[in-house]
Design a protein around this nucleic acid. Structure first.
Lengths: 243, 243
DNA sequence: GGCTGCCGATATGTATACAATGATCGTGCA
DNA sequence: TGCACGATCATTGTATACATATCGGCAGCC
């Protein structure tokens, strides 16, 4: 009894077959929006109207609201009462918190990752690093950014601790937002060869080296940002015109 | 308990008067349910029917669903498609992950906490520890459990890193669930004087001592559990009757 | 007598309708 | 001409109605 004839795939996008199971469809939409944010196709501050999204994805506002709420808990979108949803614009303080958290968790995970990493993992990580380099070379910044976040997340998952891996995943998503706001154009977060070097340390089982390298790696990303609190919200006119 | 039947009978007239802002009301309900779970008044596995909750809190199912979803993302309740919501029953693996995560984050936070702690914080922490001891002595287990989780959360928040503090808060909530499933009755997680000792180390600014003590403290809690995977969900009949 | 399959009851999933609120634009007055 | 006030509009918040899947019981059949 697998007939599911009542799912109307309106909106012209029949993606990945006809498996339009509600939950999976929602998952898919969540991922679509999430990816768009992480890849900077939706910039911080962009408004996300429920009607428009409902129209685009061919479901009703009810489902969209559910997804927006989830994105809000993941801190990718900000829900302002009566004003709707918009892509979160991280503050300088949040940026610092996120990178401090990454220092603690990602570095702390490295020894365990080095212990548990297997050949399959190494192969996959190398492939991801390769695709990232390739994307960078061909100027596909969006793809490179997402692959970089995917790389860090995948790494954390090798540790076997799902709770910490989920946390790292969210931190990486938020980092992507931070890059969008405070990053310098043309200078992407991760150096192109860093990830390859990291894989090398992990392959030889040198957890402490990997930890130290990850620490430098993250510090380098953070240092590449120009974090200046832009007071776009309420510009201090007095200060600006005080001369 | 109350005669809360159909508050919105006459439209918005009564709402403008009592300042019953929807968002705050939702927050309140979320907290009510959350507390009930953390305090073990709702045991793992308990079903949470939408209709019943809607009836109890006097709002419609729409609002309840929103809250249940949030609780699900916080991993306090489990949402099974078509089966509804129930209080999460953590697996042994999840329990291990949660305590490993707490080791990494809470211990890692101690030096910074020791650096930033102030007199107000110390006063408040002492008060919390005192109330916890008192609750334990008078047999109010529910209160003691919640106060213990509050203590750890409050501690993390002193670090100034909101992201990590939120994470710790969620880990503590989940720990409370873990205690409900794997804890031994009569032997609560935290020793009654541990928290006071910890405050002592923090007061003298000895971050490393505090970190080491926190590590022992968490290990002690974890050791007090009897983590045996009970396969009540889907007993493996083949394995059981294989002889 | 036990197992299987159907059927009603119950609860959830989804969409839509309506209400309320904040934003925008136009008009009137100083 | 500029500002303030008011009406309209756009958008979200909430509730309810309808569709659909699951669970428990009962009867019929092997």
């Amino acid at each position: 009894m697998n007939q599911r004839q009542t799912v109307a795939e309106r909106g012209g996008a029949d993606r990945s077959g006809k498996n339009g199971d509600g939950a999976e469809r929602h998952e898919e939409i969540h991922r679509s929006i999430s990816d768009a944010i992480i890849e900077h196709r939706l910039r911080p501050g962009a408004r996300l109207r429920e009607d428009a999204l409902a129209d685009v994805f061919g479901i009703s506002r009810t489902g969209i609201r559910k997804i927006l709420q989830r994105l809000a808990l993941e801190q990718l979108v900000t829900l302002t009462p009566r004003r709707g949803a918009s892509v979160t614009r991280p503050t300088a303080e949040e940026a610092k918190d996120v990178f401090d958290a990454r220092q603690m968790v990602e570095c702390g995970l490295m020894p365990e990752v080095a212990r548990r990493i297997g050949d399959d993992d190494l192969r996959e990580l190398r492939d991801m690093a390769r695709r990232e380099r390739q994307a960078l070379k061909s100027g596909e910044q969006s793809t490179a950014i997402r692959l970089s976040a995917d790389f860090h997340t995948r790494l954390a998952r090798i540790s076997g601790n799902a709770t910490l891996a989920d946390f790292v995943e969210r931190l990486c998503s938020r980092s992507s937002l931070i890059l969008a706001v405070y990053g310098n154009p043309g200078h992407l977060g991760c150096e192109s060869h860093d990830h390859d070097d990291l894989i090398g340390y992990l392959e030889t089982g040198n957890g402490e080296r990997a930890r130290a390298f990850m620490s430098r790696h993250l510090k380098a990303i953070e240092a590449s940002l120009s974090i200046v609190e832009e007071e776009a919200e309420a510009p201090d006119l007095h200060r600006i015109f005080s001369d």
